[in-house]
Amino acid sequence: MEVKRLKVTELRSELQRRGLDSRGLKVDLAQRLQEALDAE
């Protein structure tokens, strides 16, 4: 999954699906999701 290409709504949805905080700026959301994906 290319996290950088996702829209903010898509980032928030993916973070919520993983039980992670979905608040913040797009750059923060993308970093949080990328870290979660790397840990999987």
Rank of each mutant, 00 (worst) to 15 (best):
S22F: 15
E35N: 12
E40A: 07
A36C: 12
L33V: 04
E2W: 07
R23M: 08
T9C: 11
V8H: 05
L20A: 05
L33P: 11
G19P: 02
L33A: 07
E40V: 02
M1I: 14
L37G: 06
K7D: 15
Q31H: 04
R32P: 04
E10T: 06
K7N: 15
Q31T: 14
E10S: 03
K4A: 11
D38Q: 07
V8T: 13
L37I: 15
R12W: 00
R5M: 12
E40G: 08
R12Y: 03
S22T: 15
A39T: 11
A39W: 07
K26M: 12
D28Y: 01
E2G: 05
G19E: 04
A39S: 11
R32W: 00
V27I: 12
S13L: 14
R18M: 08
L6A: 06
V3P: 11
R32Q: 07
D21P: 10
V8R: 06
R23A: 15
R17M: 13
E10D: 06
V3M: 07
M1T: 02
A30S: 09
L29F: 02
S22M: 11
V27T: 11
L15D: 05
M1Y: 01
R12C: 06
A30T: 11
L6N: 07
R18I: 01
K7Q: 14
E40I: 01
R23C: 14
L20T: 02
R18D: 01
L11P: 02
V3F: 05
E40T: 04
E10N: 01
G19C: 05
L11A: 03
L11G: 03
L15T: 02
L20C: 07
L25P: 15
S22W: 12
R5C: 10
L25R: 14
R32S: 05
M1G: 04
A30N: 04
K4I: 06
D21N: 07
D21E: 09
R18E: 02
R18T: 01
Q31F: 08
V8W: 03
V27S: 14
V8Q: 09
G24Q: 02
S13F: 12
L37T: 09
S22K: 06
E35T: 13
Q31P: 10
R17I: 09
E40M: 01
E35V: 12
K7C: 09
L11N: 03
L29Q: 06
S13N: 13
K4E: 14
L37K: 08
L20F: 05
M1W: 05
L33F: 01
V8G: 05
E35R: 12
Q34I: 04
A30G: 05
L15E: 03
V8C: 09
R23L: 11
Q31S: 14
L20Y: 03
R5V: 05
L15C: 07
L6S: 03
A39Q: 13
Q16V: 11
A39D: 09
D28E: 14
K26I: 10
E14K: 01
A36G: 05
V27G: 12
L11K: 03
G24R: 00
E14M: 07
R5Q: 13
D28K: 10
L33N: 04
L6F: 11
R17V: 08
L25Y: 12
T9V: 09
D38N: 15
V3A: 10
L6Q: 08
E35P: 05
V3S: 07
A39G: 12
L33M: 07
L29I: 08
E35D: 13
S22P: 15
R17P: 04
R18Q: 02
T9N: 12
L25S: 15
E14Y: 01
T9M: 14
D21Q: 08
K4M: 14
K7W: 00
L25W: 07
R12D: 04
R5W: 07
L29M: 14
K26P: 13
A36H: 13
S13Q: 15
Q16P: 01
L15A: 03
E14C: 03
E40S: 06
S13K: 14
G19A: 05
K26E: 14
Q34E: 10
M1L: 05
R5F: 06
V3Y: 08
T9A: 12
S13G: 13
A30E: 13
L29E: 09
R32V: 01
G24M: 00
E2P: 00
R5L: 12
S13A: 15
G24W: 00
L29Y: 03
Q16I: 15
R17H: 07
K26Y: 10
R18C: 01
R32D: 11
L6T: 13
K26W: 09
A39H: 12
R5T: 12
D28R: 05
L33W: 01
K26G: 09
Q34Y: 03
R17Q: 13
Q16A: 12
E40W: 00
D38E: 12
L25C: 13
R5A: 13
V3G: 06
E35W: 04
L25I: 11
K26N: 11
R5H: 15
D38C: 09
Q16T: 12
M1E: 11
A39L: 10
S22R: 04
G24A: 00
V8S: 09
D28L: 03
E14D: 01
V27A: 15
D38V: 08
E10L: 01
S13W: 12
L11W: 00
G24C: 01
R17L: 10
R23N: 15
A30R: 13
R18H: 01
E35S: 12
L15K: 01
E2H: 08
L11V: 05
A39P: 07
V27M: 13
D28T: 13
G24Y: 00
G24H: 00
L6I: 01
E40H: 02
M1D: 00
Q16Y: 04
E35C: 12
L20P: 01
E35Q: 14
D38Y: 07
K4G: 10
E10K: 00
R5D: 15
G19D: 13
D21V: 02
Q34M: 06
R12K: 15
E14W: 00
R12P: 01
K7E: 13
K7F: 03
R17C: 06
R18P: 03
L11M: 11
A36T: 08
L33K: 09
V8Y: 14
R32L: 00
R18S: 02
V3E: 06
L33S: 07
R18G: 03
E2V: 06
K4Y: 10
R32F: 00
L6R: 02
Q31Y: 10
V8P: 06
R5E: 14
K7I: 04
A36F: 06
E14L: 06
E35G: 11
K4T: 13
S22L: 09
R23K: 14
R32T: 04
D21W: 01
L37D: 07
R17D: 08
L33H: 03
L37C: 07
E2Q: 08
A36N: 06
G24T: 00
A36K: 05
G19K: 02
L33Q: 07
L29T: 11
Q31A: 13
D21T: 08
R17W: 02
E2T: 07
S13Y: 14
A36P: 04
L11T: 03
Q34G: 08
R23P: 02
D38F: 06
T9W: 10
L20N: 01
L37N: 05
L25Q: 13
T9H: 15
K4F: 09
R32N: 04
R5I: 07
E10A: 05
M1C: 04
Q31G: 11
M1R: 07
A39N: 15
R12E: 09
R18Y: 01
V3I: 14
E10C: 03
Q31C: 12
R17A: 14
L33T: 05
K7M: 11
L6G: 03
A36M: 04
G24S: 01
R5Y: 07
R23S: 15
R5P: 03
L37H: 12
L37E: 09
D21A: 04
A30Q: 14
M1Q: 03
D21S: 09
E2M: 11
L6W: 06
L37Q: 10
R18W: 00
K26H: 13
Q31R: 14
D38S: 08
D21G: 02
E10V: 05
R18N: 02
V3W: 04
L11F: 02
S22G: 12
A36Q: 08
G24D: 01
L29R: 05
V8D: 13
R12V: 10
A30P: 01
E10W: 02
E40R: 05
V27C: 14
